[in-house]
């Protein structure tokens, strides 16, 4: 247990000057959630990478609402190290879904960034590959299937798809 705690403290110390809030989840003792501002994502990832803390498991996004009821996208960068998972997290408002790429630090993040772009409409500044990864070529532009507002292609969307 102390071993796990050491790892978590280590991660916290690397991110201490960037983090806005640090949470140790109660249901899973091997996790730490570090909340940062959207523009600090790259710095945070670089801090972990430079200290050789873990490896990037994946980038997750989810559609949620903030405490005051505004819709927002949660963005999570999961890092695994030994028995622990360190998550760098941020929130992007729906009308400003922009974040910097981390591909120049971790090259293999490109597939995860492409996925976030495609399914959530998050604009990732400087990501090397912007081609489609998952959705069909003729998928209508501006339709992001993982957003809560998406409930299936409407007739209009289907029509657009077929007429192309």
């Amino acid at each position: 247990m102390t071993d796990i705690m050491n790892y978590l403290k280590e991660a916290e110390s690397y991110l201490s000057d960037i983090s806005e809030k640090v949470v140790y989840p109660e249901n899973q003792t091997n996790r730490i959630d570090v909340y940062v501002a959207p523009q600090d994502i790259k710095r945070a990832v670089k801090a972990l990478y430079d200290h050789h803390f873990g490896y990037l498991i994946t980038i997750s996004a989810y559609d949620t609402t903030s405490d005051d009821g505004k819709p927002q996208i949660g963005l999570v960068y999961h890092f695994g190290e030994g028995p622990t998972i360190c998550s760098i997290r941020t929130f992007l408002p729906h009308d400003h879904r922009i974040v910097d790429t981390i591909c120049d630090i971790i090259g293999s993040a490109t597939v995860y960034e492409r996925e976030c772009r495609e399914l959530f409409g998050i604009e990732i500044v400087g990501t090397p590959d912007k081609s489609k990864l998952l959705l069909p070529e003729d998928w209508p532009d501006g339709v992001y299937p993982m957003l809560k507002s998406f409930t299936g292609l409407t007739d209009a969307g289907k029509w657009q798809k077929e007429s192309k």
Binding site: T58, S60, Y62, S108, V111
Partner: peptide, 18 residues
């Protein structure tokens, strides 16, 4: 509310191809 899946083939694909 959300289920995110990251499979092994995906990250290994990045390794091998790139």
């Amino acid at each position: 509310d959300r289920v995110k899946v990251r499979t092994a083939s995906l990250c290994n694909w990045g390794t091998i191809v790139s």
